[in-house]
């Protein structure tokens, strides 16, 4: 019985899912593993941390204001005596969620527009003129208009925090896909004329398959770079938005905001900029390494070696 099951299992596993190959290759990439481990650590830190570190991020303890690191406040406090550690944790939740979703949105829109424009000649003109339009729009007045038109509706629909979250992700995503689109299109234009694409097309591969099997995998690396830069961009843009009063309420911490508020205190309380600055940089760095590993793992030419 036992023999049979193992045998069955082996034969069953024989046509191995290609994602296992990807994982095997990913595992050999040391930077990617460290990056992934660190990213998971950051996720645990910001989402599970508040369970163990129970100080309220919004609680003002005025006697403890502008303190350096101590046992009661390992990362010090801000000018109102709010605990920096718990603010980094709570702020990280928002920043990571905004950063990841906004980046994904921008990436999906950008890649879609870029591939369609590069691959289908008929769509190229209109899609690229649309990209030009979005690049030319004045960002701030546009934001003011979007906020004016949609904030109250979204707030009524999803509540103040979720409503603003959707708005911010939408706003950042919709205003930062253009670079990705231009880059992907440029690569696709060149790729389209390569021999293997011509070969695949000559045997009658339908466009959908062409794009998913031959085009997309070959434009992955610029997309990965865009993704990494996109996260950093989204986290910083979010702080700029809340500074303009277009983002989350002012007592709602995010990494970008903590860094912004701490900048004036650079000389007196350097830990106020060091921690959020490190959090943003290291997160972006870890995403970068994950991206590197993924790219290598998804590249069949490298995978075999």
């Amino acid at each position: 019985m036992t023999d049979l099951t193992t045998l069955e299992a082996e034969t069953y596993q024989k046509p191995r899912n290609q994602w296992w190959d990807v994982w095997d290759q990913f595992k050999t990439h040391k930077g990617a593993l460290i990056g992934a481990a660190f990213f998971i650590f950051v996720l645990i830190f910001v989402f599970l941390g508040p369970i163990f570190w129970t100080l309220d991020a919004q609680y003002i303890d005025i006697r403890a204001r502008s303190q350096g690191p101590s046992w009661a406040h390992p990362m010090g406090t801000d000018q109102l005596g709010r605990d920096t550690l718990s603010r980094i944790m709570v702020g990280g939740q928002t920043s990571l969620l905004v950063g990841l979703t906004a980046m994904l949105l921008a990436l999906i829109v950008g890649t879609l527009v870029g591939v369609l424009a590069g691959y289908f000649k008929r769509l190229d003109g209109i899609l690229m003129r649309l990209t030009d339009l979005f690049l030319a729009l004045p960002l701030l007045p546009l934001l003011l208009v979007i906020i004016m038109l949609f904030r109250d509706t979204l707030r009524a629909q999803f509540g103040p925090e979720k409503g603003i979250f959707i708005l911010i992700v939408f706003v950042i995503g919709i205003t930062s896909w253009m670079q990705t689109a231009r880059i992907v299109r440029g690569d696709v234009l060149a790729l389209k004329e390569r021999e293997f694409v011509l070969a695949a097309r000559s045997i009658g591969t339908p466009p959908y398959r062409m794009i998913t099997r031959h085009v997309l995998p070959n434009v992955l690396s610029p997309i990965m770079v865009s993704a990494t830069l996109g996260i950093a961009n989204a986290i910083i843009t979010e702080s700029a938005l809340s500074f303009l009063g277009l983002g989350f309420p002012s007592d709602f911490p995010t990494w970008g905001r903590l860094l912004f508020d701490g900048t004036d205190w650079l000389q007196r309380n350097p830990e106020r900029v060091i921690w959020p600055g490190l959090a943003i940089s290291l997160t972006v760095l870890s995403v970068n390494y994950i991206g590197d590993g993924l790219r290598d793992a998804l590249d069949p030419r490298i995978r075999g070696r």
Binding site: S250, D251, D261
Partner: peptide
Amino acid sequence: TSTNAVRQDTQAL
């Protein structure tokens, strides 16, 4: 209120 670091601190307090 309007956006201004001092006003936001006052609001929080």
